[in-house]
């Protein structure tokens, strides 16, 4: 059953829950495009202020795409993106009895991967990282970017292909 009385974005509780669900993804989304944490942080602030100012005009189920649209527009106003630097989860690769050679190879691989990610076109990188890091479904990413699911699959396919080619030096 759906609630009969529709909730309003202006209500503090609703607004806070929209913020806690989406602010991190907006931040990551813009970071993957920009490569600048400070700007991504500012974009989050600005997008959610806009949502607050227009809270009476935005239905709760539209709030998410509203915030992404604003974040996207703010991104478009900035000319040049910096390098995207990412980290690895600590300990995930820490098997004690690895040989030094193996560890070095792994390290080299990570560096190649990092460079390859930086070289990807912005839209492929964003799609790839939103899926791999934030676990977003293709349909969700399509929503954020305002394109079809098929377009996202295309970007994902190309991202994988390009990454492999770059890493292996083909």
């Amino acid at each position: 059953m759906k609630a009969i009385k529709e909730e309003h974005v202006c209500e503090d509780k609703v607004y806070a829950s929209i913020f806690s669900t989406h602010s991190k993804t907006v931040f990551n989304y813009i970071y993957y495009k920009f490569g600048n944490e400070e700007k991504a942080y500012d974009v989050v602030q600005e997008a959610f202020i806009k949502l607050w100012e227009n809270c009476s005009k935005v239905a709760p189920d539209k709030a998410k795409s509203y915030v992404y649209t604003i974040a996207n527009n703010l991104y478009l106003n900035v000319i040049k993106a910096e390098k995207v630097r990412l980290k690895y989860a600590p300990g995930t690769n820490a098997v004690v009895n690895e040989s030094p050679d193996f560890i070095m190879e792994e390290q080299e691989y990570k560096e190649k991967l990092e460079r390859a990610l930086q070289a990807l076109p912005e839209n492929q990188r964003t799609t790839f990282l939103l899926n791999r890091i934030d676990g977003k479904k293709y349909a969700e990413i399509a929503d954020m970017e305002g394109v079809s699911v098929k377009a996202i699959e295309k970007r994902m396919h190309l991202a994988l292909k390009t990454l492999r080619e770059k890493i292996e030096g083909i």
């Binding site: 913020f19 602030q45 980290k87 690769n93 790839f128």
Partner: peptide, 16 residues
């Protein structure tokens, strides 16, 4: 390799 990637730090409490 990309299973282990982590995103940038985001201090949600501060942002809020």
């Amino acid at each position: 390799a990309t299973d282990n990637l982590v995103g940038p730090d985001f201090d949600m409490a501060k942002a809020w």
